[in-house]
Measured scan of single mutants.
Amino acid sequence: KELVSALYDYQEKSPREVTMKKGDILTLLNSTNKDWWKVEVNGRQGFVPAAYVKKL
């Protein structure tokens, strides 16, 4: 599985998104959309802005 690192804090703005803190390591589930990537963090799945994470 592919991992990404959070470059910035992000506070979810809808139920489809997830909150992350800078430095968090997230499991990348889907990166086909260039703007929003689906990740899993702390057992929750949702979307984060692609520009806020980088692949490890």
Rank of each mutant, 00 (worst) to 15 (best):
E17W: 04
V4D: 02
M20T: 03
E2P: 11
K1A: 13
Y8Q: 12
A6M: 02
K34L: 10
K55S: 10
A51T: 11
D24W: 11
S31R: 09
F47W: 15
A6W: 02
E2Q: 14
K54V: 15
K54I: 14
V4I: 09
K34H: 11
V48H: 00
D9Q: 04
L29W: 06
E17P: 04
K22G: 04
D9L: 03
E17H: 07
Q11A: 13
A50P: 05
L7H: 05
A6C: 13
G43I: 02
V18N: 03
V48C: 03
T19V: 03
S14H: 12
Y8C: 15
A6Q: 00
K13M: 12
V53Y: 01
P49C: 04
Y10F: 07
I25Y: 05
L28D: 00
A6S: 05
Y8P: 00
G23L: 03
I25V: 12
Q45C: 12
S31V: 08
F47R: 03
L3M: 12
S31Q: 11
E40T: 06
A6H: 01
S31T: 12
A51Y: 10
S31C: 14
K38T: 08
R44S: 06
V39I: 08
F47A: 02
R44T: 07
L26R: 01
I25G: 02
N42A: 10
G43E: 06
S14L: 08
K13S: 11
L29P: 00
L28H: 00
Y10I: 01
Y10H: 03
K55G: 07
V4R: 05
N33C: 11
F47Y: 15
K13R: 14
L56H: 09
V48N: 00
T32F: 10
N42K: 09
N33Y: 09
V53W: 02
L28M: 03
D9R: 03
G46V: 04
R16A: 12
K34R: 13
S31F: 07
D35S: 12
W36F: 07
G23R: 03
V39F: 00
K38G: 05
P49I: 03
G23A: 04
N42C: 09
L3S: 07
L28G: 00
K34P: 14
S14Q: 08
L29C: 07
R16E: 12
K13N: 10
G46N: 01
T19L: 03
